[in-house]
Design a protein around this nucleic acid. Structure first.
Length: 301
DNA sequence: CGAGATGTTCGGCT
DNA sequence: AAGCCGAACATCTC
């Protein structure tokens, strides 16, 4: 399920319910492949009687800080989720970790076991956390960082490169498709084939898609703006490209199903094309986004 | 019943 | 040597 926005949503859930409250007891339901870092049983001792103090996310990574210098790192993998349940909630199948607080339980569930749980004991945030790459929507996600990443993956299709967490922390399958569609770039283009203006455009769209996703999905699980590819790719029925009306294609690229619009993602020579009344970004001559998001969002509510 | 699923890692090859 | 690719991981759902 989770990409950057969903991860943010889950972390917020635990944070809002649990911060400031002591963990009375901890249940670890033996699934050793999930507990990295020799965590597992250690978690019981390490977290019991400590208070949850912080909840952060970075891309798809989550970090929960506890009193006494205990840090719980969680990655949701493909099917992980966090929930807040009642105090007497009974752990069900695939619940791997349950933190019991006075009046609630914080639950980590993951059917496919691709998730990961880590424990660190240190006064400050663990080193692995501090050395994560710049978040896509932060000022540190510079044009230089993007250029470097694209150069490194000069011969890889953009679709695969966008899933590289070292370059684009938090981008997953649906966000990658959304970005390419909004930027009108074919998923088959390689990093080395992009022109400077296209790289700028890619950066603008990346940041916009991340920010808007965080403000919708990440905030309250609400849908991203109307007009996004998002709404088509999750549709049970085949639907046409919202821009061209022509069929969307589903194709395997780098081992992941890619939903894209060949008639739309055509790498236009002109950067100043204008799309009337449309939820996705428009671009000016510098490849900058003239984003109508703010207004669109208000209208769609 | 088989295929595919919002992800990462590992091994083998260039 | 870094980058590229495919397979593997485990379970559920359509």
């Amino acid at each position: 399920m989770p990409e950057l926005a969903e991860v943010a949503y889950f972390a917020k859930k635990w944070g809002e319910a649990g911060i400031g409250h002591r963990v009375k007891s901890v249940e670890v339901h033996a699934e050793k492949r999930i507990f990295k870092n020799g965590s597992g049983p250690k978690l019981v001792e390490a977290l019991s009687n400590h208070t949850l103090k912080s909840a952060q996310t970075h891309g798809k990574q989550m970090l929960f800080g506890f009193s006494g210098g205990r840090w719980l790192g969680i990655h949701l993998g493909m099917t992980g989720e966090l929930s807040v349940e009642s105090a007497d909630y009974e752990a069900k199948k695939h619940d791997h970790l349950v933190l019991r607080q006075a009046d609630k339980s914080l639950v980590f569930n993951d059917a496919r076991l691709f998730g990961a749980v880590k424990l660190d004991l240190s006064e400050n945030e663990p080193t692995w956390w501090k050395s994560l790459p710049p978040p896509v929507s932060s000022p540190d996600f510079t044009l230089e960082h993007l250029e470097k990443g694209l150069k490194r993956r000069a011969k890889t299709p953009l679709k695969s490169t966008l899933l590289d967490q070292e370059i684009f922390p938090g981008i997953g399958n649906w966000m990658a498709d959304e970005v390419l569609w909004q930027a009108r770039l074919s998923p088959h283009l390689t990093g080395g084939e992009l022109k400077p203006l296209e790289i700028r455009r890619l950066r603008e769209v990346l940041r916009a898609v991340c920010e808007i996703s965080l403000e919708t999905v990440g905030k309250d699980w609400s849908d991203p703006p109307a007009g996004w590819l998002f709404h088509e790719r999750w549709a049970t029925k085949e639907r046409p490209c919202p821009q061209t009306g022509k069929p969307l294609v589903r194709e395997d690229i780098g081992g992941r199903t890619t939903c894209w619009s060949p008639a739309w993602q055509t790498r236009p020579a002109r950067m100043d094309y204008d799309v009337a009344d449309y939820g996705a970004p428009k671009f000016n001559a510098e490849g900058k986004v003239k984003s109508p998001y703010g207004k669109k969002r208000a209208e769609s509510k």
